[in-house]
Design a protein around this nucleic acid. Structure first.
Lengths: 328, 328
DNA sequence: CTGAAAGCGCTTACAG
DNA sequence: CTGAAAGCGCTTACAG
């Protein structure tokens, strides 16, 4: 059986209370006692049981993260940074891949509550699901979940503006936008509003196509096909996700479009991975590490000092100058 | 305060024992009692505390996963599948990104033990670190950690053979291999052995370059530069990772090589993401979902029935026919 | 500086 | 079919 505090105490010839004190460096203990206790712990290879600790302390130091799926570069990178920061702060991460299944999201949410997580980071849909849970500390990324849950996003409006203006400055006149599911109101919709505003300001028409479950690779192609069928004369496309932008680019090439001569394309996300293997893709870069940092700053404030004042936070974006939107 | 079993019991007018029985559907309870208990649970919004349960049961249903970083497509996809299967089986995942830091790996390993995980999946280096821990259930992916820890991999030897033979069949005579850190003995080294064997069988010389910490994007370029400086006449490259293959391809193009005419390139991993956004890259496909399934099959066997007999398992690979290795 | 006792929220023999 | 008691491994007032 695993050794417990009592076993250490027996070997060291002290009480369990004293062992616990040594373990937590709490109160005054003579150096001699400390040494005895450490020696005993080493002798029987003692490992403290965090479950018991958490139970007593009513603090698990557990953070739940719900993302659609870590196989998408943006979420993979975001999760890495979130977990990394949690680890530095002494928190542990329970990972949940919802796979866009709202039933799974509900189950995960319940599971996290049963496991007494101190906080949850939600990067997923399902507004309403979370209204019940005003008591739990939570922060969302790019999704409105309830009025009580702060939202951190890249500056979607500026990003959308920057993307559209980059295409217009490169000479595009017929710019079409592809975004995610329009049924859900998310901060990412601001990319669309910004695109529409920029087009109007230029005195041009706008039109947006929508991909359901944008993080699912398979759903892109049908929307892309429809776009080119409806608008063979398109000369600029702003895709709200780099994978989508790359799929669009591939399909356009297969139809014979020259990029960027006939058609200019700009994406969104600009993860380290995509910039590294697809540097030619012009895109709006979300500062993933900074987003992770802001999310956790807010979450830890909630956890440690009660509700933070933040409702919604937009982190600045930047332009990655590839070659798919011309060379400006 | 959060309601506990005692609160439910009081409202339902029964004992905590009975509430626990209803919760666990254990023993005989009258339907009437069940109804009362369920009603009480709903009334006060009771959520069971899994920490307390786990403490008593000496089973946490927690699985620790240690990967280099989820921002690499292979690990992002692997983690997604691992977590997904765990979830189906009623297990929860504690995620650890070691970031190739052996000190962090050690800390994570300790943390997972303190949290009473039922098992650990290790996709990381540091042989020796784990020798102490013969008691903990663990399975490794593509790494030898200790004689007691089973290893699941793609069939690295066949993969290496297939890659090399594909290049040779396409007419390459001077094929160079790029692999990971040679200081560490991993199953992935078999890709190199297979490459060497295939070259010998063809009566050709072989040479392998090594990238330290292969999953770190930044480390690739220096090795690639050295390779082209040493061997401008290279006509085939087998890179042991798709990202590395793409970087090689980019650099070769920048030097003026035509792919696949002057130089043929083949990668390894073939994640869903890379096949989707870089379908032209010829590569050896690791069946990530199947690897995840085998890993967990072995791990759950260890957990539920003591040690499984498996020591090492190789999962079949396949060839993704892009265009970077010719059109065979 | 150190220890005995109670309790974190749950479950499970043991009685009845 | 149901309950009182003990215990999972830890920690923290409260005494001394």
């Amino acid at each position: 059986m695993k050794p417990k505090i009592e076993d250490v105490a027996e070997i060291a010839g002290v009480s369990p209370t004293t062992v616990s004190r040594v373990l937590n460096d709490r109160g005054y203990i003579s150096q001699k006692t400390k040494d005895k206790v450490y020696a005993a712990m080493k002798e029987i290879n003692y490992v403290p049981n965090d479950l018991a600790r958490s139970l007593y302390n009513k603090k698990s130091n557990l953070i739940g993260i719900i993302v659609p799926s870590t196989d998408h570069p943006f979420f993979g990178e975001l999760v890495m940074h979130l977990e990394n920061i949690c680890n530095q702060k002494g928190y542990k991460v329970l990972l949940c891949n919802s796979l866009h299944d709202s039933q799974k999201e509900q189950q995960y949410w319940d599971m996290l509550q049963r496991n007494q997580v101190d906080g949850v980071i939600v990067v997923t849909y399902n507004r309403g699901l979370f209204d019940q849970a005003q008591n739990l500390c939570a922060v969302a990324v790019d999704h409105y979940l309830s009025d009580y849950i702060p939202v951190v996003s890249s500056d979607n409006f500026k990003g959308g503006k920057l993307a559209t203006e980059t295409l217009l400055a490169a000479g595009c006149r017929k710019v079409i936008h592809i975004n995610g599911d329009e049924a859900i109101e998310t901060p990412a919709n601001k990319r669309q509003y910004a695109y529409e505003e920029a087009m109007k300001e230029a005195g041009l028409d706008h039109e947006t196509y929508h991909v359901p479950d944008i993080a699912f690779l398979e759903h892109n192609i049908n929307v892309i096909k429809a776009l080119f069928k409806d608008h063979p004369d398109v000369d600029g496309i702003f895709a709200s996700d780099d994978i989508l932008a790359i799929h669009t680019l591939q399909y356009a090439k297969s139809l014979g479009y020259k990029i960027p001569e006939d058609l200019k394309i700009i994406g969104y996300d600009g993860t380290k991975l995509i910039r590294s293997i697809y540097p030619e893709l012009t895109t709006i870069v979300q500062p993933v590490e900074e987003i992770a940092g802001q999310v956790l700053k807010i979450l830890f404030e909630e956890i440690e000092q009660g509700k933070s004042g933040v409702k919604e936070l937009a982190v600045p974006v930047s332009l990655w100058k590839g070659s798919t939107a011309g060379s400006n």
